[in-house]
Simulated scan of single mutants.
Amino acid sequence: MKVMVTGAAGFIGSATTLRLLARGDEVVGIDNLNDYYDPELKRARLARQIDHPNYTHLTVDLADRAGIEAAFAEHKPQRVINLAAQAGVRYAAINPHAYVSSNVTGFLHIIEGCRHNGVEHLVFASTSSVYGANTTMPFTVHESAEHPLTLYAATKKANEMMAHSYAHLYGLPCTGLRFFTVYGPWGRPDMALFLFTKAILAGEPIKVFNHGKHKRSFTYVDDIVEGVIRVLDTPPAPNPDWNAAQPDPATSSAPYRLFNIGAEQQVELLRYIEVLEDCLGRKAIMEMLPLQPGDVPDTEADVTDLAQAVGYKPQVSVEQGVAAFVDWYRGYNGVL
């Protein structure tokens, strides 16, 4: 089938695109190649797919309404995976307008394109950050997530609500995926694993917030991509048993679903660093710092629903995943 992937030169978007191409799908990739981080890394990811006969790349910003409308009108995708977004929880303090432009206005342009062009299924990236002030572990999509602690999380919560309204009003099948701390080869330079590896190899200190005590459901990128594609292949149907008197936020009377996607096993940050030290053969110099404003102390994913719906089961351990990242990092950057 023909699939539109936004953020196609991004970390998860490029990996998803390659998997779709490998199984014989046609992919229309959208990415504006902005400079939030080094565009050369984005171009290097893009180089892996740009010459594939079933790949078409469009350098368009999601906030460009006319550009997105033209992309849908010309290419008529059957299904859409929206992974493009202004990422990062801390950059919002510097440039909050970028989050609304890309994550809210841009998302509106994508969902409008789906609505007016007969798209069969929209799969979109949300985030575990929407759980915000929730403290009940593991995080489940069946509980309310009404208290995001960052603008990034708030924009992703807005995406979930916008998608539900379109599923209800226009019958557009929509599935939102709340990603939990994705890592692996070709990752973003602003993420902890990238920053830690660069600093340790340079003999520089790493900043360890919350004194390394917080825990995350670290999830290897290939496990994420597997889940995304399984979900893409399984459009949601309306749920006739949905009870408006006791509403379940994970489903609806409309063709709409929300899932957590991530590894169920929590790993403490200090253990994550220890695994990285083992892979690099070097010890980290750790600068212990308090928890940053807006950071969630712990995350833990309940992926029971995703396992039941599409057979999702992460396969890659943190030890395997970090080792794969280190191998890629050394090769990509030419360092020993």
Rank of each mutant, 00 (worst) to 15 (best):
G106R: 03
C174P: 09
V3Y: 02
P255L: 12
A309V: 06
A153D: 04
L258M: 06
F107M: 04
L276M: 13
V326I: 05
V100W: 11
A98R: 08
G29N: 04
A47E: 12
D190Q: 14
G262W: 10
Q292H: 06
A309M: 06
P189C: 14
Y36M: 13
I68G: 14
G184Y: 12
A63W: 12
Q320P: 09
G24M: 08
N34K: 11
S126P: 04
A9E: 02
D35C: 09
L289H: 04
T304R: 05
V100E: 12
P236L: 00
Q266C: 11
A70I: 12
Q308E: 15
V335Q: 06
N34R: 11
Y256A: 06
M286I: 13
A154E: 02
P96D: 05
D305E: 12
L280I: 09
R230V: 00
S144F: 06
E26A: 09
G203W: 13
A250L: 10
S102W: 04
D302P: 06
L46A: 10
I68V: 15
G184E: 15
G7R: 01
A307N: 07
T181V: 14
K157E: 07
A87S: 14
T17L: 01
L269I: 14
A192F: 12
H52P: 08
K42T: 10
E69G: 15
F11H: 11
G331P: 09
S101F: 13
P236Y: 01
A202P: 10
A254Q: 08
A98D: 12
D31R: 14
E300G: 01
H57G: 15
F72S: 15
G88S: 11
L169D: 13
G331F: 06
Y170C: 08
F139W: 00
G10R: 10
L201W: 09
D61Q: 15
A8Y: 08
V3S: 03
P314R: 11
P205I: 07
